[in-house]
Design a protein around this nucleic acid. Structure first.
Lengths: 233, 233
DNA sequence: CCCTGTTAGAGTCGTTTTGACTCTAAGTGA
DNA sequence: TCACTTAGAGTCAAAACGACTCTAACAGGG
């Protein structure tokens, strides 16, 4: 017989050899690009006020409070840095390589979407700054890799999952929804085909009202359906 | 200005309030079903030798060693319990709800595929037992949920990712590969269409050799291509 | 040696999905 | 009334997909 670990979740190890646990968040919002004016992905970063990497930009986050669930902890960090509440929040990955930090830290990273219209009151906190996602500086730790991975996940997920409403108000036109997809994917989408496919998914519901005063045909307003109204098996 | 956390990965908090960190693994292998004989998903569980949940079955795992990366730690647990090396290993999720354990434990869970032919020398360790994935008992902690989630991930991923070779030898016939897909998805697949689609993915390469002595037309042997030989943009 | 049973592997066909494109609807402003 | 703009429906050909057929190539039994 081999001597084995007993596979326990439940362990007590000497505090000296313990590993620190942190929760961070990659927060995405859509804002106009400063040069082109096109809708673009932005994210908030926090300037470090301690070693290591003092003075460098990093993802918002902090230690896991013993009374908070992981997602709660991520939402709190997010709220404390940006003043926003996430419209969508999902665990991204647990990063824990030995060499990712001078001392051993495992970071459980979440990614979140916040609404553009809440976005205005976002710059209240000091040493927090929003950056265009494709133009971020060199970050502390492995946070550049984390941001890249989060962007990849966002761009993948938006192609098959109805998460785009995380950037929008409760009601929106198909043009607004398409604009979100275009901003995330970085390319133009055919309006007619986009309409056909997004409606075929059966997640959208016409509100019955229309936007007026648009100098062209008034677009219909849609909302995302509650889960139990959707076309599911 | 709002007072904010400084978003640090790097924290020191009193050891008293610290959260324990464990790494566990959901290990999948294909073996014949004890009743039907059909290829079926199995996984190894470990009987707990401590409170809480003493005597109940749990996923293999243990505390994170300070010198191990997360994936390394998962692979070690896997190897210590089963004697096997993973052919595929991927992080599943970090489970850290406050109420998932009497004391606070965050578990970073990996899922792995192991080969059937290594599978024979697998029952060497005591208090380890293999179960049919759809017929597992009530497990410790939230491990039933974790197993369900891992199965969902496996069944989803096999439809778009070439992970099925994690169950197979280096060379295999298309019938063997199809049999893996059928076992994972739990339904029959059309041999002709499966062939067409799997070959169109461009991840398979004919070895040039064939299986002989089969009492029918000899099937060609394939292998998975190295990443740089694949049809990628 | 031929016949049968079995799986390998190529090919067919109709349906569905997708991308590119056209056409009409419905508003504003000149 | 006309020009302009976007909404939204519709068309069409290419590609993908599922169900199916047909021939190839072995072993084993008469």
């Amino acid at each position: 017989m081999t001597l084995i670990n007993d596979g326990q979740d439940h362990v007590t190890s000497p505090a000296a050899t313990r590993v620190d646990l942190a929760v961070s968040a990659v927060v995405f919002a859509l804002r106009p690009h400063p040069v082109t004016g096109e809708p673009t992905i932005w994210l908030p970063l926090v300037k470090r006020i301690r070693e290591p990497f003092l003075g460098q930009w990093a993802l918002p986050g902090g230690p896991l409070a013993p009374d908070d669930d992981l997602a709660t902890s991520a939402a709190k960090s997010l709220n404390q840095t940006t003043g926003l509440k996430p419209r969508y929040l999902e665990q991204l990955y647990a990063f824990g390589n030995v060499n990712r930090s001078p001392d051993r830290v495992v970071s459980i990273v979440y990614w979140a979407l916040v609404r553009a219209d809440e976005d205005s009151r976002a710059d209240t906190a000091e040493n927090v700054e929003w950056f265009v996602a494709d133009e971020i500086p060199e970050l502390a730790f492995d946070h550049n890799d984390i941001v890249s991975y989060a962007l990849t996940r966002l761009r993948n997920k938006i192609t098959w999952s109805p998460i785009a409403h995380g950037f929008l108000n409760d009601t929106f036109t198909l043009a607004e929804l398409r604009s979100v997809h275009e901003a995330v994917l970085g390319r133009q989408l055919d309006p007619a085909n986009f309409r056909r496919q997004i409606l075929a998914d059966g997640m959208l519901e016409a509100t019955g009202s229309f936007v007026t005063g648009t100098s062209h045909r008034p677009p219909a307003l849609y909302r995302f359906m509650a889960r139990n109204k959707r076309n599911e098996p």
